[in-house]
Amino acid sequence: MLEAIILGFVQGLTEFLPISSSAHLRILGEFLPNAADPGAAFTAITQLGTETAVVVFFWRDIVRIVSHWFRAIRGKIPHDDPDARMGWLIIIGSIPIVVLGLLFQDQIETTFRSLYVVATMLIVFGIVLGLADWAGAKRRKLEDLTYPHGLYFGLAQSLALIPGVSRSGGTITMGLLLGYERAAAARYAFLLAIPAVFGSGFYQLFMSMGEPAVYGPVETAVATAVAFGVAILIIAVFMKWISRHSFLPFVIYRIALGATILILLGVGVLEPF
């Protein structure tokens, strides 16, 4: 139970920062007494807690988007209404991760969880994030989001199926490359994650019933609750941070963590699986 609480805390702490929560759970599992990978199912289920925090934090936005989307469908308001468009943008942006998640499910649960893959992704996408933050124009606002750009965001989000990329990091990086402000890119990234995370979490919850796992249902439920509580605080802090600061601290952290894991793998302290 203590391990589950620790993992839930780390999940809530890292989910919305561009440092990959799935990578941290994968790495941390090796240093806990069980010394085992918590598993893709545990990670996906605990993400239900962090994503519920997104729903709470952005509740008014979500209600408005859903309401306007349905009203536009029924012809009550114009189809180019900003909130109705955002509904379509979230749907379009969610398609890539659904398709790729189903196509590569086996690799997601096995090959992609190698610590060599995790460490490499931390470093590579840390560098890409740093370059995007340095070179991005940061002029476009959320209102400027187009349907093709929504699809590009979705493709970037789907890279988070590989631990070490980071869901928020991948989508925010794409937003910066497309010229969006940091806060605008992050806001769309958080909204875009809602269907994907809930879909993946409930799917993994259903599929894991009766299956052997490192952590049982009670421990997983506690970890999910802890992740929710921590995530509520992190979202508010992160949204204020990125309005005034660069992503450089996260870039440095990612590269340092990835390099450390590669060194530990090289000297035999850690095993890839």
Results as ranks from 00 to 15, higher is better:
3 E>V: 02
8 G>M: 09
9 F>L: 13
10 V>K: 07
12 G>M: 05
13 L>C: 06
14 T>C: 11
16 F>H: 02
20 S>P: 06
22 S>L: 04
24 H>P: 08
26 R>K: 13
29 G>D: 04
30 E>Q: 14
30 E>R: 13
32 L>S: 11
34 N>Q: 13
34 N>I: 13
37 D>T: 04
39 G>P: 05
46 T>V: 15
52 T>N: 14
57 F>W: 14
60 R>E: 03
67 S>F: 11
70 F>N: 14
75 G>T: 00
75 G>V: 02
78 P>G: 04
82 P>R: 10
82 P>K: 06
84 A>G: 12
85 R>K: 15
85 R>W: 07
87 G>A: 02
89 L>S: 01
92 I>L: 09
93 G>Y: 05
93 G>A: 12
94 S>K: 06
94 S>D: 03
95 I>V: 14
96 P>N: 02
96 P>T: 01
96 P>I: 00
97 I>A: 15
99 V>E: 07
103 L>D: 10
108 I>W: 01
110 T>M: 04
112 F>K: 02
113 R>M: 02
122 L>E: 06
122 L>K: 06
123 I>P: 00
126 G>I: 03
126 G>C: 09
131 L>N: 08
132 A>Y: 05
132 A>V: 03
135 A>D: 07
137 A>M: 07
140 R>E: 02
141 K>R: 11
141 K>Q: 07
141 K>P: 00
142 L>Q: 06
143 E>P: 00
143 E>C: 04
145 L>C: 00
146 T>M: 02
146 T>C: 01
150 G>A: 13
150 G>K: 08
152 Y>M: 14
158 S>P: 00
160 A>I: 03
161 L>A: 12
162 I>S: 10
162 I>C: 12
163 P>I: 01
165 V>D: 04
166 S>Q: 09
169 G>E: 03
169 G>S: 07
170 G>P: 11
172 I>F: 01
176 L>H: 04
178 L>G: 09
180 Y>F: 15
183 A>W: 14
186 A>Y: 05
186 A>Q: 03
188 Y>C: 00
189 A>S: 15
192 L>T: 00
192 L>A: 02
196 A>D: 03
199 G>W: 05
199 G>V: 00
199 G>I: 01
201 G>H: 01
201 G>T: 02
202 F>K: 03
204 Q>S: 15
205 L>R: 11
208 S>T: 06
210 G>M: 04
212 P>L: 03
214 V>S: 10
214 V>E: 10
215 Y>R: 10
219 E>Y: 12
219 E>P: 11
219 E>I: 07
219 E>F: 12
220 T>L: 08
221 A>R: 09
223 A>V: 15
223 A>G: 10
226 V>Q: 05
228 F>I: 05
229 G>W: 06
233 L>R: 12
235 I>S: 02
235 I>T: 11
236 A>N: 10
238 F>R: 09
240 K>W: 13
242 I>H: 10
252 I>H: 12
258 G>W: 12
259 A>Y: 12
261 I>P: 03
262 L>A: 08
264 L>S: 08
267 V>N: 15
268 G>K: 08
272 P>R: 12
